[in-house]
């Protein structure tokens, strides 16, 4: 089961990487970046997975017996932080993309290539 998670997250990672490398539209690149981030978050959670594990919440006094069967909560905490970072990055990049569109009149990342001649 864990293998499936890891495999799918790595494939998400590569899909995202492919998108970042080949797409020209900035919004598409940002979406691909988001896919990559999702993939990596999934990878982190999958690293903490224990087979047939239970939720890592202490519900009653006896739950402490099942300590070893609990799924690792630390990666889940890391992932929460990472999701928020991804949120911030995406929001900021989109704002930048709007300004980019306003300046270059196009959302292609190749548009800023013809800048020579503007500034020596």
């Amino acid at each position: 089961m864990a293998q499936l998670f890891i495999l799918s997250s790595i494939s998400l990672l590569f899909i995202g990487l492919f998108g970042v490398l080949t797409r020209k539209n900035i919004v598409k690149i940002l979406i691909a970046l988001n896919i990559m981030e999702t993939g990596i978050n999934l990878l982190l959670v999958a690293f903490g997975y224990v087979e047939n594990g239970i939720v890592p919440i202490l519900t009653s006094n006896e739950s402490i017996m099942n300590l070893t069967k609990m799924v690792d909560p630390v990666p889940q905490a890391l992932v929460l932080t990472s999701i928020v970072i991804g949120l911030g990055t995406t929001a900021f990049s989109l704002a930048l993309a709007i300004r980019y569109r306003y300046n270059h009149n196009s959302l292609s990342i190749r548009a800023s290539e013809e800048e020579e001649g503007v500034n020596i």
Binding site: L17, L21, I109, R110, S112, E113
Partner: peptide
């Protein structure tokens, strides 16, 4: 270095 958007490609 002028182009700049081959950045991720070179990174990979």
């Amino acid at each position: 270095f002028r182009r700049g958007e081959g950045a991720v490609l070179l990174f990979s």
